[in-house]
């Protein structure tokens, strides 16, 4: 059972893409890998006002992740709280994970030649903090939500 999910209040999101850079800066990523994305549909007129809604996407942290199964070195792991993450020292950068993922979520870091992906900033979570994208979201539109079984 996954413990967390990232929720975007699209009413508050202004599409500034701050989250994308907060994430990259926190992980020290070079140009290339992007671990979360903000997207929107083309504008449509709603009662005279052209509108659209923003969507946020990062890793879905699948219940049964293909990326973990396919990883030849056991570098891709799933924690007990559901977080799917890369154990970097074990990663050989073969990127089989990206091929196995239906959404191509794992990204290649050209500087380290290893896979990198959203891990909800688990080092920060473990230190009692929030993920970078949530902490610094320009309009406080992103939230890390703990899921409960009903």
């Amino acid at each position: 059972m996954n413990t967390y999910t990232l929720y975007l209040n699209s009413k508050r999101c202004i599409g500034c893409h701050g989250c994308v850079v907060h994430c990259k800066a926190n992980k020290g990523l070079p140009v290339g890998p992007i671990l979360c994305e903000i997207s929107h549909e083309r504008l449509k007129s709603v009662r005279g006002v052209p509108k659209t809604e923003f969507k946020f996407r990062s890793c879905y942290h699948c219940e049964d992740p293909f990326c973990v199964t396919i990883c030849p070195t056991g570098a891709m792991k799933k924690r007990e709280d559901g977080i799917v993450y890369v154990d970097a020292p074990k990663c050989i950068g073969c990127m089989a994970c990206a091929g196995a993922c239906p959404w191509g979520i794992p990204q290649h870091n050209p500087e380290t030649n290893k896979a990198v992906k959203c891990d909800y900033c688990m080092d920060r979570l473990d230190a009692g903090l929030q993920p970078a994208c949530v902490t610094k979201c320009t309009t406080h539109a992103l939230k890390l939500v703990a899921m409960k079984e009903i």
């Binding site: 800066a25 926190n26 309009t139």
Partner: peptide, 23 residues
Amino acid sequence: TWIEGNQHILKGALCAKGSAGPA
């Protein structure tokens, strides 16, 4: 290693440019 908006005023909020400072 980390830049955030002043919690006392911005509650951490920062834009993309703000995080791109170290770059």
